[in-house]
Design a protein around this nucleic acid. Structure first.
Lengths: 349, 349
DNA sequence: CTATACCGTGAAAACGTTTTCACAACAATT
DNA sequence: AATTGTTGTGAAAACGTTTTCACGGTATAG
């Protein structure tokens, strides 16, 4: 591999000092038109790019934003990441993505990865860090995690999407408070459903608990009893939806509608219902609490709550950028969930 | 924000020289047991992490691997990225992900993003770069792109997953040569299908062209004519599958089977067929050429080619790591496609 | 007992930038 | 005509590490 070209060579080539080249690159001070052209030509010629190392060392900025996520494979995170990445790039930042593999079930082993992520962000000198989900969205944090998060937040702006922690130095944003769940339950209720199952999601995870709470509240508001047996948690993907719905059916719980954590879970539920000879929506109505990409292409088309995750991604990254600029805490826009009625729910007598 | 702790403070705190602290951190030379303990305690106490900037400046290594992808939202890339990220982390590297937004349709505008990505990787001092898809997988590269790629490959090990370019300094790996397509066509043929449509994918993209080529070859080998009207390209997602299949039906082309570019496209095709009152598999058989996550949960369960994209991801990252170590070019394992027969194809008379 | 090897340590150079300071040239203001 | 301000430039310090060199001490070999 070729040795890298340095600013000194550019300076020599264009017959000016190193400082002047730096000024051309950064526009940090006026430079005569003639000199600017000569320098730019040299830069072009050698395909010179300034060393981020040297730059960061003195300017103390890396132009890197760190993103810590549990599983990029989850369409929810993928969608958010896309928005984050786009906005960061637009603002001139690059994105260091750390995929921790965290899941509530394996919190014991995967906490180490999250702590590792914190350390990496510190080492690489990230100018700001986004923590999305993972242990930050757990109902109870482990003390090591809590400490690691604070250590990091002490040195660099951190925005976390998760379950708010009192007195933390990092800014917590909440994914949602379960407003959509009300809409979904009401929708099903208005169609005559009284036995509504809740399928998918992991217990101990804040977002799941919040939705379950909202589900319970909504039932109560409508005068319906809360039946433990109607709740079947598991995880966030199709196989989990299948497992959760299958369990529900096998255990003989009666229900006429299913609220699935998200489209993936709903797909699994569709499948489990079909496997037991139940038709959607003729026998059972299905609704997804969090629409990803393909709800409109399912058969039947899936009625779903659009939580506007892209907007959430945008909100999170712009909160971070604002924080990095030192702006006052702007009230971030909270996306309003929207019920998109399609074909998977039907009125019953 | 607090000022960062430096190695000097750790040295002072533990009563040794800076060099010794460095040796403890890197294990680059023997250090007495006693000293090591003192230093480690100090590091722990101050939550010290060495500055990557300073480190990189002198050692010329960033411990960063750059990944350039067109669209992380595409499950195919997501799956690969996951493997890449995991393997990189295991080897002690962090991953800088640049999402270019490239698509063949907008090559004109998005080429700029890809060039920008190359520059970023150079600036951040990536120790190795992975270029996955994007313009690298186009049948014909733009000269600026070609030059940017070579400039980068001259300075840092680069592995590209795409369409091989002669005389390039970067190592090209091919996604597949269309072997699976033969299996799929033969499978359909053996079930009695003679009018097999090909749906999805973008023209000018190498992977699509290769699959189309294999599709043509397979037909020829079986003595079937190639009918242009049976091919309906579009893009890689469900809406594209819908559009492509819908177009096919509307234009009145007769067919009894559909080969979809991937699961997403297949889902769209399912939907389009249903919209026209056609049942799968009773009226039309459907097969996916690239299984993502959920094929087994579709209704009907989707017969698909498993291209083992996770293995491909692993192969790509390990090729890069080998290259970075300067190892001889190991023949990378090429995943063998596997036909997974489920319920979406049926024998016809 | 002397020569040789190795172990543990510190001092200092080097990495490639940005930034501060200094200053010359010239323009604008008194 | 003297002062002040502005513009364009270069020299040199600083950033926080790793690495090279040197050296004293102790173990090992002859």
């Amino acid at each position: 591999m070729k040795p890298a070209v340095t600013i000194r060579q550019i300076a020599r080539e264009s017959g000016v000092s190193v400082s002047t080249v730096s000024r051309v690159i950064n526009g940090s001070a006026p430079v005569s038109e003639d000199v600017r052209r000569r320098v730019e030509r040299a830069i072009e010629k050698y395909a010179y790019a300034p060393s981020g190392f040297a730059r960061g060392l003195v300017s103390r900025r890396s132009m890197i934003i760190g993103v810590i996520m549990p599983d990029i494979t989850n369409p929810y995170f993928t969608a958010m990441f896309r928005e984050i990445s786009l906005a960061a790039q637009r603002a001139g930042y690059s994105v260091l993505l750390f995929n921790t593999g965290f899941s509530a079930a394996t919190a014991g082993e995967t906490t180490r990865n999250e702590l590792e992520a914190f350390k990496v962000m510190q080492e690489k000198g990230a100018d700001g860090v986004l923590v999305v989900g993972g242990q930050a969205d757990l109902v109870r944090l482990r003390p090591e995690y809590r400490r690691g998060l604070e250590d990091m937040a002490n040195r660099v702006p951190v925005v976390a999407l998760g379950n708010p922690v009192d007195g933390s130095r990092c800014q917590f944003m909440e994914r949602e408070r379960g407003q959509g769940i009300y809409m979904a339950v009401e929708h099903l209720f208005s169609l005559g459903h009284r036995r509504i199952a809740f399928v998918g999601g992991e217990t101990d995870v804040a977002i799941t608990e919040r939705r379950l709470g909202a589900y319970g509240d909504a039932l109560a508001a409508l005068g319906l009893p809360y039946d433990r047996n109607l709740v079947s948690t598991s995880d966030y993907y199709a196989p989990d939806g299948w497992r959760a719905a299958d369990r529900l059916i096998r255990q003989g719980t009666a229900f006429t509608a299913v609220m699935a954590m998200n489209d993936g879970v709903a797909l699994g539920a569709y499948r489990a219902l079909a496997d037991h000879g139940l038709r959607v929506p003729e026998d059972v109505s299905v609704i997804s609490c969090d629409q990803f990409f393909d709800a409109d292409y399912f058969t039947p088309r899936l009625t779903a709550l659009n939580q506007h995750n892209e907007l959430l991604g945008q909100a999170v990254i712009s909160a971070l950028l604002a924080r990095m600029r030192g702006d006052a805490q702007s009230r971030p826009l909270k996306p309003r969930p929207e019920l998109v009625v399609r074909e998977s729910c039907r009125r019953i007598s």
